[in-house]
């Protein structure tokens, strides 16, 4: 029973700060200390949320963005994983490609938009490309790092047991790198949503990135704040999902 209460309290604590902020925010806007022109009150944002949910608009935005985000994530994540894997295992390959990848990593997506339209047009492909590109690097870097930093003694031990090649990789190197890979996944799940802000300026008609940019264009503060909150929640959700897999796959590590 005691542990149960302890667990319950533990799960509440992280939410106290956001909740307090929300409360202060509401009180301040209620008193008129924060003008609704500067920052709409939480209730106004809630109202925007409810109207958008009622019309089904919000669901459309989130679902289409989710589709773009996940497709991009699968493509970019796989490429990043494979690159990280091979570069981690084969030193000469790393020498050959790593510099180029590091250079590509820092190109801002906004600057790429004209090229992306040239290459992929204004349809879904261009949006998915941008997400894939954004997701690729965190997965790549962490996979590569994970594989490089597997404990040498564990590899030695594996070899002593007669493991080599693929079996050594599957039994020792990959599990050893997994925690780092999952950090990359967790990070890229966040990046995936952020990229949509830029990707959905390309001739989009829905999506949460579109919703945010659109609200900015038309000065709808309540929807801007709603998008920000949505982003915050989606960020947290991505984190929860990644943690779930960490717990599942990294049992041996805890």
């Amino acid at each position: 029973m005691k542990t149960f209460i302890k667990e319950a309290v533990k799960s509440i604590i992280p939410w106290i700060l956001p909740f307090l902020l929300l409360l202060v925010w509401q009180i301040l806007s209620f008193d008129g200390i924060i003008s609704s022109r500067i920052l709409p009150s939480p209730l106004a944002v809630l109202k925007a949320f409810l109207t958008l949910s009622m019309t089904g608009e919000l669901f459309d935005h989130v679902s289409i963005s989710l589709e773009r985000a996940l497709t991009g994530f699968l493509i970019g994540g796989s490429i990043g994983f494979l690159l990280g894997l091979f570069n981690g295992v084969f030193k000469w390959l790393e020498l050959f490609t790593d510099t180029s990848i590091q250079m590509l990593r820092n190109i801002p997506h906004l600057a790429l938009i004209p090229l992306v339209i040239l290459w992929f047009g204004i349809g879904e492909t261009s949006k998915i490309f941008l997400v894939a590109l954004g997701v690729l690097f965190p997965v790549y870097i962490n996979t590569y790092h994970g594989i490089r930093s597997v404990d040498k003694r564990l590899i030695e031990m594996g070899k002593a047991y007669g493991l080599k090649g693929v079996s050594l990789f599957l039994a020792v190197i990959f599990p050893g790198a997994l925690s780092s890979i999952l950090v990359g996944v967790r990070f890229s799940l966040g990046v995936m949503w952020l990229t949509l802000i830029v990707a959905e300026t390309i001739s989009a008609h829905s999506g949460i990135g579109y919703m945010a940019m659109n609200a900015r264009e038309f000065l709808q503060m309540d929807i801007i704040v709603l998008s920000i909150l949505l982003y915050a929640l989606l960020g947290k959700l991505s984190d929860v999902i990644a943690r779930f897999f960490e717990r599942k796959w990294l049992k041996w590590n805890t």
Binding site: I113, P114, I117, L118, G121, I122, I202, S203, A204, H205
Partner: peptide, 19 residues
């Protein structure tokens, strides 16, 4: 079918005959 594009992006899409 509307394609929402800012002028700079619109020019590229137009030249590429995407619109």
């Amino acid at each position: 079918t509307p394609a929402f594009l800012q002028p700079g992006d619109g020019r590229i899409a137009f030249e590429q005959k995407k619109i």
